[in-house]
Design a protein around this nucleic acid. Structure first.
Lengths: 223, 223
DNA sequence: AGAAACGCTGACAACGCGCTCAGCAAACGG
DNA sequence: CCGTTTGCTGAGCGCGTTGTCAGCGTTTCT
């Protein structure tokens, strides 16, 4: 499940981007305000960001600069009404990964986002320690215990990978559901609990901790 | 003295390329016809080639393919128009050394040509080990087992080349489809699986590994 | 203490995924 | 102009995967 943050104040363009990206299989979140976009990019995990430069409250370039300073390294595609070369250069220098000039075709944005994510998949540190002697490798999409790969089904891996990216944070069930399943999902289902149980049976019972009434946590045993 | 062959049918672009490259200190030869370009590249020595894809009489890709088959291994920079090539370049670029998408800045072409010549002087290898005693040569566009070339169809080679470039990373089927086929791919087709099956029959069953529900991987058995 | 909410488990049936085979259209080559 | 190669499609099959459901233990609240 790939999540995209779209920071765009023009509602019409935003809606069209959302439609195109959703049709391409992405989960899309829209923010029309620079500060809001900055905050979400700072606190949540996105696989890529579509960032308009002319945002209210906080300029797009500033948003990007702040993210990079904070160590956030998700791929960012910049949208700009002005297509000057120096603008482009400045954007790239600040840490943008690609650049599209308005007006643009929706398919072009989709194609470039795909390319960025693909490229990032090869670069992002592919190993995450998740405790209990377990290491999650995002390139090979597998979990190993002291070098030995554990057999995980796709859905099981996705759950573990998502928790690993949120290590140390309590993740509500509803959030897991939204990331693992399509939007239309029955809420009175216990599929997440079943899934967690299955993962525990494979990796050991004490890795994923239950915070009753709140959600699940991985690692960082802070009582 | 560095000689550059420019194969470009658009006279205006050709002239601008010639001016820029000449200003950079290269000796430039221009051909506007695919067959002529092929012939000159076959019989004369050039330090690099700028090759447009939309050539009359003989397609640019065919020209390149013929050169490589004949053992000509000078660096080739491909010029491609956005719509037709763009998306597929990454998967098919395997025969070329670099590519630039139209419209482009002249300085960019000059810079890349310089880079190509420098790289070629260092004789950077174009061979990729893919395990099982197999070697993929991107210049010759062929796969060899202990020196003996294996007969692969173009599509089979493209699949293997793409996986080879992503060696050690699980590549989802959808990503393969996007690189091998046109944008309007049918989602309910099993063409990739059929293709993988055929490649396996040629190179051996254990080279390409299936990660059910995830995709395919090449090499790097981090078991 | 009783009731309700929450989470875990085992069983099960349906579905999805990947593979093979056969067929056919288009491109290629003599 | 005809045979061969190439590559896409569809049907069928086996099996792993996954959501659902019922039941039960535990926690929480009144």
């Amino acid at each position: 499940m790939m999540r995209i943050l779209v920071a765009e104040d023009d509602l019409r363009i935003g809606k069209r981007l959302e439609a195109a990206l959703t049709a391409a299989g992405f989960v899309v979140e829209i923010e029309a305000d620079g500060e809001d976009a900055w905050h979400r990019g700072e606190t949540e995990e996105f696989d890529a960001v579509v960032l308009d430069l002319g945002l209210p409250a906080m300029d797009g370039l500033t948003v990007l600069k702040e993210w990079r300073r904070a160590g956030r390294n998700m791929p960012v595609l910049i949208l700009s009404a002005r297509g000057q070369w120096d603008e482009r250069v400045e954007g790239i220098e600040v840490g943008a990964d690609d650049y599209v000039v308005k007006p643009f075709r929706m398919e072009e944005v989709v194609a470039r986002i795909r390319a960025l994510i693909r490229r990032a998949a090869g670069q992002v540190t592919s190993r995450i320690e998740i405790g209990g002697g377990l290491v999650l490798d995002t390139r090979l999409m597998q979990v190993t215990r002291s070098g030995v790969p554990l057999p995980l089904t796709p859905q099981e891996y996705r759950l573990l990978a998502y928790l690993a990216h949120q290590k140390g944070r309590v993740v509500p069930q509803l959030e897991i559901v939204e990331h693992l399943y399509a939007q239309d999902f029955e809420r009175d289902s216990n599929s997440v609990e079943v899934l967690v149980g299955r993962v525990r049976r494979r990796i050991g019972p004490d890795i994923i901790k239950t915070r009753r009434g709140f959600g699940y946590v991985l690692g960082s045993d802070e009582a």
